[in-house]
Design a protein around this nucleic acid. Structure first.
Length: 122
DNA sequence: GCAATGACCTGCT
DNA sequence: CAGCAGGCCATTG
């Protein structure tokens, strides 16, 4: 499998990221660093997000299941709003933790995913 | 081919 | 607990 990768397809980090994200089971979430590690580049967590923004297959790649290391969601660049992403994840059975008890939440700026329960493990 | 960017991560204040 | 800064490396123009 070494002298064959010259014909078609660019086995770039991007393609690997899509493959990993697509393998995330419903009701679970993975962090950018984890996807990067599974893609073979634990230090390239930044490009995981870049990869999803570069060519996200709408309806094919569940990018909404990819969250930060601390459980927070991507600001603005989400599929139309972090609140939208939170709704999708919560509907899939993902557990969420409120920012603070009794404090006015600014949208989802404080909502974090319970990675202790819903982080996907390969 | 070079330079700049970036949906992050970690540590410290 | 929350906010700020720097660093890592691949992709784009």
């Amino acid at each position: 499998m070494s002298s064959h990768e010259h014909h078609a397809g660019n086995p770039s980090f991007n393609e690997l990221v899509y493959a990993v994200v697509r393998r995330i089971p419903r009701g679970k979430v993975a962090t950018y660093g984890q996807v990067a590690a599974l893609a073979g580049r634990p230090r390239n967590a930044r490009f995981v997000g870049f990869a999803l923004h570069a060519n996200p297959q709408p309806g094919v790649i569940p990018c909404h299941r990819v969250v930060f290391r601390d459980g927070s969601l991507a600001p603005g660049f989400a599929f139309g709003g972090p609140d939208r992403q939170r709704a999708l994840l919560e509907e899939e059975g993902v557990r969420f933790i409120p920012p603070a008890a009794g404090r006015d939440n600014a949208g989802d700026g404080g909502w974090r995913v319970d990675l202790d329960r819903c982080q996907w493990q390969a």
